Amino acid sequence: MAAGGDHGSPDSYRSPLASRYASPEMCFVFSDRYKFRTWRQLWLWLAEAEQTLGLPITDEQIQEMKSNLENIDFKMAAEEEKRLRHDVMAHVHTFGHCCPKAAGIIHLGATSCYVGDNTDLIILRNALDLLLPKLARVISRLADFAKERASLPTLGFTHFQPAQLTTVGKRCCLWIQDLCMDLQNLKRVRDDLRFRGVKGTTGTQASFLQLFEGDDHKVEQLDKMVTEKAGFKRAFIITGQTYTRKVDIEVLSVLASLGASVHKICTDIRLLANLKEMEEPFEKQQIGSSAMPYKRNPMRSERCCSLARHLMTLVMDPLQTASVQWFERTLDDSANRRICLAEAFLTADTILNTLQNISEGLVVYPKVIERRIRQELPFMATENIIMAMVKAGGSRQDCHEKIRVLSQQAASVVKQEGGDNDLIERIQVDAYFSPIHSQLDHLLDPSSFTGRASQQVQRFLEEEVYPLLKPYESVMKVKAELCL
């Protein structure tokens, strides 16, 4: 049975990233139509530049190519590739079939990587351009969430054990800070992308030097003109047959890092959902379990974690691919890159769409948070109580021993009897502590235990987050809708 299948058929496997999760716009960027249309555009740009620099290419040939950029006979191309065992030459023939007058000058002087690699770089750039505003929107939604809850005390956790208090907004800023680093890295790697350009079979530009009869300047002009037509500021000066596969490492490393950030955020949300302090959106008709109707599973956060793990592992592909590119190139890269580049971007696209949807509907339960604080705060307040007693004339050592005994009794009630923490009640009825009984409410005010959390939130948002989001103001209103 021949390899390949009808990918629109229910009898043929289709990647869930495309069929179930990723956005239509990201799927289109990695589609065959987008790819092969870009090949034709690159052939047109090459012909236009070659004509401008004096090669015998007519206006009629150029116009014929322009008129057929979208006229792609995919069936013919597939048949040609089956016959020739070469995808680029299959599309040269297919393009030439609908451009008979231009057929002889299509791909003039070029090698397969002229269309293959340059198209990949265009796709990487455009895919990054799709991700950047999506990530900015996630940051914006979380920034709104953090600002609104900047002063809401909550129990902090280290080692997932109760620690000092923080605020809900401050905790959210930990998430935002990681995503801001990801946004900066995505922008950097996007701006650092260079075009492969017009380089020939081993990167020496020998074929173009021959076409222009040894004119170095025209060869350099050709490279520059096509690079500018493709919208790049610069091209690699040095290439082998391909652009260095280190570029793929750079791009997928940034995406993998984004995956790590999203995994951490969504894990926190899942843990908070278990504590009943916070939940992701839950639709009115949504079913959490087929057997347990009360369940409210954090399905979206779980999906993000599941896909983020996949995204983090994909960076190993370009690392290994770059390491086995012998001399000017081997074909070890080809099949692998067809999979890992598309999957990385479709996965990143999915987790950003999902995280935006989550961040637009996060639900906080202040009463649950308050109750958990009441359970733990008495123990945390013991040092403040000791200091207040010393100020009232008591002995630190005597007070410490009193607190120690009462704390152990209260802990026994919590752990052995399943009761509430009654340390404060014990202190309130103990005559030894009568000098500070009137101060206990103040000493137990949760806001006095959150330090500068709310001020940190305000400063972080104003100095770091809002300036970073400013270039994306025009796209901030787009909502994230999930079908599944």
Rank of each mutant, 00 (worst) to 15 (best):
A256E: 02
S448M: 15
K246W: 04
K295W: 03
G419T: 08
A143P: 00
E343P: 11
N274S: 13
H159E: 02
I123S: 12
A308I: 02
I373V: 12
G214T: 10
S454G: 13
T330F: 01
D117H: 03
D223R: 01
P133N: 12
L53M: 12
V226F: 00
V363N: 06
R303D: 00
D87K: 00
R303M: 04
T321N: 11
Y243F: 15
L131W: 00
R396T: 04
I385H: 04
L307V: 15
A110W: 01
G200F: 02
K147H: 10
D317A: 09
E360L: 07
F232Q: 01
S67H: 11
S447H: 15
E228P: 04
L130P: 00
N421R: 04
A453Q: 00
A453D: 05
D6E: 15
F236K: 04
H93D: 12
K75S: 12
C113F: 00
V413F: 11
I122F: 12
G5F: 12
S257E: 09
F208Y: 07
K233F: 11
A143W: 01
E148N: 10
T330S: 10
L183E: 08
C98A: 11
R194M: 07
K246M: 03
Q41A: 10
V405S: 13
R374N: 06
G104F: 09
V138F: 15
Q63H: 09
R40Q: 05
Q221G: 08
I249R: 01
L258M: 14
S448Q: 15
P435R: 11
P366R: 09
K415R: 08
V324K: 04
E70K: 13
A235D: 09
N297R: 03
T354P: 05
V92M: 10
Y21M: 01
E383D: 04
K66T: 13
K284C: 14
R396L: 05
L42H: 05
S9P: 11
E213D: 07
E383R: 02
Q61I: 08
L252K: 04
E328F: 01
T350M: 11
L186I: 13
W43T: 00
L186Q: 07
K170R: 14
V88N: 06
I436V: 09
D333S: 00
A335V: 08
Y466A: 13
A308N: 05
H91S: 13
V390H: 08
R141D: 06
L258C: 10
D144A: 15
H7S: 13
E228V: 09
E360M: 07
S454L: 10
F195L: 10
W39G: 05
E48F: 02
M65R: 04
Q205H: 07
D73K: 08
I238R: 01
M225N: 08
E473R: 14
A49G: 09
L132P: 12
A335I: 03
S257C: 09
A411I: 08
G418E: 01
T330Y: 05
L272M: 10
E464A: 07
V247Q: 14
D422A: 06
K218Y: 12
V198N: 09
D422K: 09
T450D: 02
F232V: 03
Q375S: 06
D422N: 09
V413C: 08
N274W: 08
Q41D: 11
V324P: 00
T158H: 00
D441M: 08
G393Y: 07
T166Y: 01
L46V: 06
I62F: 06
R270I: 03
P471I: 15
G104Y: 10
H310E: 04
D178F: 00
L209Q: 14
T158I: 00
F30N: 06
I139S: 10
G394H: 06
K233A: 12
G393W: 05
R426L: 07
E376S: 02
A260Y: 03
T321R: 02
I269G: 03
M389R: 09
